Amino acid sequence: MNTSNHILVLDPITYTGGSKIATREMLDLLNRKNNKITVLTANPRSWLLRSVNIIKMSHPNWLPISEYGKSYWFRQLYFCLWLLYIRLFYGKIDVAVGASGPGIDMPIYMMKWFFGYQITQLIHGPVGLSRSIGLCLCHAEHVFYLQSAYPSLLAALKQVWRKEIASVQIEKQEQLLATHHFEPFVNGISEKNRPTPCQYQSPQLFWAASLLKWKGLDLLLDTIEATNLELRAPTTICYLIPENNALPTTQAPRHIEGITWHHQPENLDTLRSEANIFVSTSHQEPFGLSILEALMAGMCVVIPSDGAFWDLILTHNKNCLKYKPNDMSSLQHQLSIANGNLNLITQLGQSGAHLSQGYQAEKCYLPIKLAMEKRSITSLALNEVKQ
């Protein structure tokens, strides 16, 4: 088998999330005949892919989890040793993929000059404000980012030229961001991974995310507890517990009548199909892959009107229901509307499913696929003409 292009994906995060699911979709599109894929990960169960080397990277408890200072750099050096291991035992690396953001994927930048690979950086949320992150953005061959991360990219790049006068800073930022080096993207789901359609027999709520505080589970739990028992719809909550993480989390599960809890279930798709009202409580969700999955499943999606991605795409009472951000009474009102109207659930769900057809992974991720394969749109077009 001709494996001329070795792609390494670095994943030091110890729990599953939307960014990993999106990256997994991207990798699944790659041509296996010409590309060897190695995933170096602290969480192997996130990467169930065909014809891929999955290398488990230990993440010992003594390893610091600070996001800055000496302990941060110590952790990065530890992961650099793992990159050295891959190079020694799995061969030359042609493309290194940062699956999270420069602050997390720093080791691939630290080792770039030793190994000589190209870097394709994926950015699924805001990046940190630091000069080192700005320098990483300058040295990656390709940076693909969700549009919501754009202001943070500008801020990080500004740190690189912070000694320059303001007009020069802006000029250099604009010049860099105007190149093919930076390209926005939206997430998609492939046809083979399309969620199972939901049921429309009786109202049932569904929530799925990690227990990170900014995912907002507390808001949903408080709303359900404040609702009379006879007015509550059955609720399914699927959750992930973030490990080796410095960010605040919600304590769960909690015993609340009417709620069924599932910790990182293997049958997530089945559980989602048994419900029909998807509730998002995240604060300024950069994209919300779980929302896209719910739309594709034909669920009635309930989201905050917070100016985030899906708030700008979806329309209240047309293909979703919206509530005031962090407002328990507003969320309770929208849930009561959905709970009491199965026809509305069906109507909004089917309208959302129709809209979701524009988010196919094969189209959304084509530029990223080509960057990983070290090809261009031009070369793809030439190959199609020859064929």
Rank of each mutant, 00 (worst) to 15 (best):
Ala149Asp: 02
Leu348His: 01
Leu380Ala: 11
Pro367Gly: 09
Pro265Thr: 01
Asn228Lys: 12
Lys386Phe: 15
Asp11Lys: 01
Lys369Ser: 15
Leu30Ser: 05
Ser132Met: 06
Asp218Trp: 05
Ile277Met: 00
Leu240Pro: 13
Tyr145Pro: 00
Ser148Ala: 11
Gly116Asp: 07
Lys33Val: 14
Ile313Ala: 07
Leu154Pro: 03
Thr346Phe: 12
Leu342Ile: 14
Tyr200Leu: 04
Pro265Ser: 06
Leu211His: 01
Leu63Glu: 01
Thr14Ser: 12
Gly307Thr: 04
Ser356Asp: 12
Leu229Asp: 15
Lys33Tyr: 14
Ile65Thr: 14
Asn343Phe: 13
Glu183Tyr: 09
Trp310Ala: 00
Ile237Asp: 03
Gln159Pro: 09
Gln121Lys: 08
Lys318Glu: 12
Glu25Cys: 03
Phe74Lys: 08
Leu229Asn: 15
Ile189His: 00
Gly17Pro: 07
Leu211Thr: 11
Ser51Ile: 12
Thr260Ala: 06
Ala308Val: 05
Arg50Ser: 02
Leu382Glu: 14
Pro107Gly: 10
Gln251Phe: 14
Ala338Leu: 00
His180Thr: 14
Lys20Met: 13
Thr227Glu: 06
Gln264Ala: 15
Gln334Val: 13
His262Cys: 03
Ser190Val: 06
Ile123Leu: 12
Trp161Lys: 05
Gly69Lys: 03
Ile21Pro: 01
Pro126Gln: 14
Leu366Ala: 04
Thr179Asn: 10
Arg272His: 07
Arg50His: 02
Asn343Gly: 14
Ser290Lys: 07
Leu122His: 05
Leu63Cys: 00
Pro195Glu: 05
Phe79Val: 10
Arg45Val: 13
Leu220Gln: 01
Phe182Ser: 03
Ile7Val: 02
Leu48Asp: 04
Arg32Leu: 11
Ile256Ala: 05
Ala226Ser: 09
Glu243Arg: 13
Phe287Asn: 01
Ala233Glu: 03
Pro151Cys: 02
Ala233Thr: 02
Glu164Met: 04
Asn341Ser: 10
Ser356Arg: 15
Gln284His: 13
Thr120Phe: 04
Ile237Leu: 03
Cys198Pro: 00
Asp28Arg: 12
Pro184Trp: 06
Glu243Trp: 08
Leu366Ser: 05
Lys215Tyr: 05
Pro64Cys: 13
His181Ala: 06
Ala178Asp: 08
Thr14Lys: 12
Lys92Asp: 03
Thr249Tyr: 02
Lys318Leu: 11
Thr235Ile: 03
Arg75Cys: 09
Asp327Val: 00
Glu373Pro: 09
Arg75Gln: 03
Tyr72Ala: 07
Lys318Ser: 08
Leu380Thr: 08
Thr120Met: 02
Ala208Glu: 13
Thr16Gly: 10
Arg50Val: 02
Ile337Trp: 02
Pro151Gln: 00
Pro367Trp: 01
Lys172Arg: 15
His354Trp: 14
Ile7Met: 02
Ile368Arg: 05
Tyr150Arg: 13
Trp161Leu: 07
Gln334Thr: 11
Phe79Ala: 01
Asn319Arg: 08
Asn319Cys: 10
Met57Asp: 03
Leu348Gly: 01
Arg24Thr: 09
Pro248Val: 01
Leu314Cys: 04
Tyr15Asp: 12
Asn193Tyr: 01
Tyr365Glu: 06
Gln334Arg: 15
Gly134His: 05
